[in-house]
Amino acid sequence: MNIEDLENEKNEGIENMPLQERRKFLQMGLAVTGVFLGGSVLSLTSASHASSQINPDLDIPVEGQYPYPKHYSMVMRQNRCIDCERCIEACKQTNHVPDAHGAYRTAIQERLTTENGVEKREFRPVLCNHCNRPPCVRVCPTKATYKDPETGIVVMDYKKCIGCKTCMAACPYNARYFNEEKYAIDKCNFCIDTRLAEGKKETACAAACPTGARIFGDLKDKSTEIYRLLHTPDTKIWVLRPDTGALPNVFYMNA
């Protein structure tokens, strides 16, 4: 069929398209962007393979083909954050974050916005985004920071850290700080050593949050709340600084 013939064809419209066909099309789009989440996803690609050391043959992953055996992520239900800072305190206690200026693994940012003429205070919890293409991991000269092959969590091997601070410069999220006690760079590791290793299912910050603003879990496990949230149709989901191409694993929504 040549192009002229195509032009003469009548538009079938999508209203007559079978539901199955529409789903297939949507699935294809999501697979191509590396996302397999049912919500309305803005510029995020949670499961795109980044660490070829795990499986070099892995191409764009779809459901069932995530790069890591577990795929830990966090959803921030941003509008639920009330800036009580219990998450920050719980993190400090659990992960022995020094009481020093600029030393924190997680924080809450705030700003004043105006919505329909009414001034509104907005809070935004932040922490390491455990990116799938982590700039910090790429730049580290000694592999002192790396993607945990089991969980995809970006972790530190403190003894290898030379303190060049390139990872700090590379991180789009200001998620790293110099830990003067360890004399190495430190960061959020989703409590992999302090809670997950003990069989706990949540990070300290998520467990401490009284409003359920922070939802932590394994994206591969369909029974988790994080899976449900990220697959709820018509949910607007966004990530921070998608332009850097880091493919973060912390997702934001108002829900």
Partner: peptide, 9 residues
């Protein structure tokens, strides 16, 4: 911060 680690690692 830790040049000795650099020499090793």
């Amino acid at each position: 911060a830790s040049p000795h680690r650099m020499l090793i690692y």
